[in-house]
Amino acid sequence: MAYSDKVLDHYSNPRNVGSMDKNSQEVGTGLVGAPECGDVMKLQIKVNPQTQVIEDAKFKTFGCGSAIASSSLATEWVKGKTVEEALQIKNTEIVKELSLPPVKIHCSVLAEDAIRAAIHDWKKKNGSANANAPVPAGSQASH
């Protein structure tokens, strides 16, 4: 399979790799996918409680090159956005940016899920009214 230059770039130089303290009040953690399915993404955000701006984001991914690239791109995109803005990121935009082929669309879906799961976790910790809104189980679309 031929990879786009952008996928190759994120694979070779992944942005924002790492972990933050998942017990911190300011940190939201999303863990999506399953080892049996060949994809697991962990995406973390650090949110400023006053402005609701995502000041930092980190990821770690077990998965193919497209999964790594999708989650790397997701961390780049959420940084500097408010939580509500970050929720607007659609997997189709990731597909477009990375020129993912149809067989890799599930990687972008998983990245969108990871963003939502991280925000959900942060909201739950911070007692937000929307915290109980369900996290779309889009990762299941990959199977």
């Binding site: 992944p14 790799v17 972990s19 863990l31 999506v32 996918g33 399953a34 080892p35 049996e36 399915c37 994809d39 697991v40 993404m41 962990k42 770690k60 991914t61 077990f62 790594i68 998983l110 899920d113 799961a117 996290v135 189980a137 990762s139 299941q140 990959s142 199977h143």
Partner: peptide, 24 residues
């Protein structure tokens, strides 16, 4: 492996078989 959340979890002593995975 440095990029893998599974490796990190395993090193933390988490048994990956016990985790309730969202995608399962």
């Amino acid at each position: 492996r440095e990029l893998s959340p599974l490796y990190e979890m395993a090193k933390e002593g988490i048994n990956l078989k016990d985790v309730k995975w969202a995608g399962e």
